[in-house]
Each structure stands twice: as C-alpha cells, then as structure tokens.
Amino acid sequence: MVRVIGFLVGLGFVVVLGYSLIVGAIAYFTEEESGPTSYDYHLYAQDVSFPSDGPLGRFDRQQLQRGFQVFREVCAACHSLEYVAFRNLTEIGFTEAEVDAIADQWPIQVPTVDENTGEETTRNAVPADNFPRVYANEVAGRAANNNAYPPDLSLMTKARGEGAAYLYSLLVGYQDPPADLPEEFLPTTGLYYNPYFPNLNLAMPPALFPDQVTYADGTEATVQQMAWDVTAFLIWTAEPRMEARKATGWAVLIFLIFATVLAFLSYKNVWRDQKH
C-alpha cells in the first residue's frame, strides 16, 4: 500500500515537473536574442594582492597608517567607520599620544549631554569613542548626497563578494564610457561610469587624484598607491583580529596534527591483532 501511494505521488511530481520543464524549455529555445545587458560591460575585479593575504599574511603597519591618512583626508568626508574605535588605532602603530590627538581633532564631534543643564550638546571625541557618524541619520546622508547614502566602511571588504580586490578596482576604475555603450547605460546627472560596479553607474564621484595626500614617509601618492593603501586599511577595519586568528590557527593546527598522529598510532596499536 505504501508503495502504491508512493508510486502515484512520485508519478504526480514527475508529471508536474515534466510539464514545467517542457513549458520552460519551449520558452527558452524560442526566446529572441535580446540586446546587450549591463553584464556585458561589467568587469571582474582586478588581480591585486595585499600583505595580509594568505595563511602567513600580516598587516603592513606603515601601509595601514598611510591608508588611514587617505581615509581621514578623503573618505571620511562622507563615509563613517561605525564599528571601529579611535583606541583601535594603537593596533596599527600609532602611539597613545597620537591617538589622543587624532580623536581630539576629529572634525565631527560626539553627541553628549551637558553636565549642568542636561541639554543635548556635543564634545570632542576621546580614544574610547567609535568613529562618529558623518550624518545624523540616513535621511540626512541622502539629502546631502543626491539621494545616495554613503555606506559605512567598517566591514566593506567583507561585505562584497569580490572583497578587497573589488574595492581597489572601484577606486581606480573610473573611466570614460566605451563608445559602443547603449544609451540606457550612459551615466545620467550625478552618476559616474565605473565598469567594476555591477550596474556600471556609481553615485560616488571619483575620489582619488594624484598627490591628493602628502605621505609622511615620502611614498609617492599615485591613485593606485592611495587606493591600495586605503583598501589595506579597510581590510584591517573589517577584521582587526586577523593576525591573532592566523597565529592561533598555526598553533592549533600543529597541535592537532601532532595529536592526530598520536591518535592514529594508538588506533593501530589497539587494533594490532584484530582482523577486520
């Protein structure tokens, strides 16, 4: 009985699916060739590597500090870094005095309450604060940016499928649209053509120009250099514990391999006179 009912149920699914399949196949094979889509002009992220790549990769602190400089002087005008605190900057080689100064001089103040009157006011940031938001809320952010809200950058390299390479490609990828680009994909007012962006037109204007920042260590501030540095900095903000993770990983792996070899030898020893 179970098998008879099962057979009928199975047959039912096969018939319905077969019907769906035939309808879908007819539609697929009779479909007319449609024109080019934005996919046809989209480019995959450039092949770029960072010192933190790979199981042995570590952050280059000099580079992270340069990247922070680019963030502070360029990106921070519009983008926030909500999940990172000023105190975390000591991890990339700034001294406590430098962090104090960075926090104190940060152009955006932190909301607080006046001790005497209880009224809402603002104060200078301290190292314990997270980086303050640029806009009070999303509506304010959209109002100031032609209705495009600049996203928070704390997790950006983890929040895109192509990761850090995508971010780098986007920063260096602004260019004139190709001549054969169909009209519907041409950037309209307030949009900029960038083939690394999935729908080709990005609301963020090109942000980096040669020598836009002056690096203290004398590195030449080309667009590629600044994009590379700020992307490295954002890899760090997305995962500040990466070095601890990899170092712990090697210790755990060495221990586990040793323990597993011992476990294998004891297994063979226990079973030595068992036929199996």
């Binding site: 099962g6 057979f7 149920v9 199975g10 047959l11 699914f13 096969v14 699916l17 077969g18 769906s20 399949l21 879908g24 196949a25 697929y28």
Partner: peptide, 16 residues
C-alpha cells in the same frame, strides 16, 4: 531546466 530534471530524478529515485 536542469534543476527540474534533477528534481524529477530525486522523487523518481525514492518513489519509483
């Protein structure tokens, strides 16, 4: 289309 074929096999395997 491929998932339709694969689903047909899944049910056919167990029930038929």
């Amino acid at each position: 289309m491929f998932s339709q074929i694969a689903t047909i096999y899944y049910f056919a395997h167990f029930l038929i």
